[in-house]
């Protein structure tokens, strides 16, 4: 693992191309939260040809359902949730210019294909490192679907949010490479 790469959102194609599976990154800027229910709403709007309540161009979507914020804190603990549940939705958001996702766990071949086609990136945050991640989140503002509670879309302002590139726009996949490298056959 090389040194840590710092990136700032919104991302450009050139920045995304420099990211490779296994790279450690620190993200600064705006990221948008969304999980199952919000994705369904966004994708339904796209199907109807309607505009989305947030402009995802160049931005990253973070799969998270935080714990409640204490008074005076922007957010509670905020680690990633399982990305595989968003396999069906992710390619549709990448197609309209979102530059990638942050979650945990491997995403499927359809997503891998969409990452290549749309020059975008899938990163993972450490599942269960939710208190540590929360410290990198400086502001949280609900921007859509307030009625969904913890599942509403929030705009997070982050500074040095820690993540690892899991699946890149070149077809790289750390899950497959990492396990092949460290697996021991009897």
């Amino acid at each position: 693992m090389a040194e840590v790469i710092k990136i700032t959102t919104p991302l450009t194609d050139d920045q995304v191309k420099k990211l490779h599976a296994g790279d450690s990154v620190l993200i600064t800027g705006i990221i948008y939260t969304a999980r199952d229910a919000a994705h369904k709403k966004l994708v339904d709007l796209l199907a109807e040809g309607k505009p989305l309540p947030v402009d995802l161009k160049g931005h990253l979507v973070y799969y998270v359902g935080p714990s409640p914020a204490r008074p005076g804190k922007p957010i509670g603990s905020a680690g990633p949730t399982t990305s595989g549940r968003m396999n069906a939705y992710a390619p549709k958001l990448l197609a309209i210019g979102s530059k990638g996702m942050i979650g945990k766990g491997e995403m499927n071949a359809g997503v891998a294909e969409a990452l290549k086609k749309n020059t975008s990136v899938y990163m993972v945050a450490v599942g269960g490192a939710a208190a540590l991640i929360a410290k990198s989140i400086k502001q949280s503002k609900v921007v859509a679907y307030e009625e969904l509670g913890a599942e509403a879309i929030a705009e997070l302002t982050v500074v040095d949010f820690p993540a690892i590139v899991a699946q890149d726009c070149h077809g790289g996949n750390i899950y497959q490479e990492g396990i092949a490298k460290y697996g021991i056959k009897d």
Binding site: M1, V126, G128, A129, A130, A131, L132, P162, I164
Partner: peptide, 25 residues
């Protein structure tokens, strides 16, 4: 990468112990 992740998990436990953020959401 594995080492870096374990370090984060251990650091996370320390932050949780301060009593403001549960260790996992």
């Amino acid at each position: 990468t594995g080492k870096a992740i374990l370090e984060q998990i251990i650091e996370n436990a320390g932050i949780a112990q301060e009593g403001e953020f549960p260790m996992c959401q």
